[in-house]
């Protein structure tokens, strides 16, 4: 049998480009490694690891079942409350931002500005927002809610505007041709069409905010983060262990529920 030969055309420009990319990428990685000094593990490291494992195996059950305001259940509930409220605030504020960033609603010039604003919001870290809001409302959960509420706009408004841009314009045009005013078009044509997707994105962001809410306490913005960081800094491993275990379980359960609802919505 004759062998079938497949001719491959070699485009030297492509090959050269490819080599160039490889050099850039590996150069960057090499440059990165050069800067990270490995100072060797601290002498106490093995002891610390032992203590850590011991702590995780003997979780602080007293703390986990302490139903007062200083206990774990309260802190977890507060974390969930921050995530829910923050997501809700951002979902509401995101809608006008999304409309402002949608090309088929406000035209391409305005939508470019809208998109830029949304990108800028997304780039601003939530921890810094939390610090700013702590100066507004004082330390505590409300600062966390505001931080999440503002930071999430960056992602939600982007996703919202993408689904608005890809919707079927027929309904909108039909309403306009019947003489519907701006708000009628918005509430009877645009929002009903995109609302399942909007809800699904909001739920997805809620999952992310659950994780974010658990670190906000680090700067004093409420939730489980503060007791967790305190436990780690004082090396109370059995308490840190129980917090991390409960946190992982809670976040996993919420993820499951939320993704199941999302599958049913869209």
């Amino acid at each position: 049998m004759e062998k079938i030969t497949i001719k491959k055309e070699t485009n030297y420009l492509h090959v050269a480009l490819r080599v160039f990319y490889y050099i850039v990428v590996f150069g960057l990685i090499f440059w990165g490694f050069k800067g990270i000094e490995y100072k060797g593990v601290m002498q106490s490291a093995s002891g610390a690891i032992n203590a850590l494992i011991k702590g995780f195996l003997n979780p602080d059950m007293e703390y986990a079942t302490n139903m007062t305001i200083d206990g774990l259940p309260n802190a977890i509930l507060e974390t969930i409350a921050i995530a829910i409220s923050g997501t809700f605030v951002s979902a509401i504020i995101s809608i006008p931002f999304a409309l402002l960033a949608s090309q088929n609603i406000v035209g391409s010039k305005v939508s470019k500005i809208g998109k830029l604003i949304v990108t800028m919001i997304r780039t601003f870290p939530e921890l810094i927002l939390a610090l700013i809001f702590i100066s507004v409302v004082g330390p505590g959960a409300p600062a966390g809610i505001l931080a999440l509420g503002i930071h999430s706009i960056g992602m939600l408004a982007k996703l919202f505007s993408e689904s608005i841009e890809s919707m079927d314009l027929g309904v909108k045009e039909a309403l306009e041709s019947c003489g519907g005013n701006y708000f009628e078009v918005l509430f009877r044509a645009v929002l009903p069409q995109v609302s399942p997707e909007l809800m699904s994105y909001t739920l997805y962001r809620f999952e992310i905010n659950m994780r974010a809410a658990s670190t906000l306490g680090l700067v004093g913005a409420g939730g489980i983060g503060a007791p967790l960081i305190f436990a780690i800094r004082t090396r109370s491993w059995s308490r840190a262990g129980v917090i991390i275990i409960v946190l992982v379980i809670t976040v996993s359960i919420i993820d499951q529920i939320s993704s199941r609802i999302r599958k049913r919505i869209v």
């Binding site: 593990v41 850590l52 974010a212 670190t215 960081i229 840190a240 976040v251």
Partner: peptide, 15 residues
């Protein structure tokens, strides 16, 4: 599920 910040503070305590 464990936020990177929490992981980092764990490793700071160890390393």
């Amino acid at each position: 599920t464990i936020p990177a910040l929490v992981l980092a503070s764990l490793f700071v305590a160890v390393f």
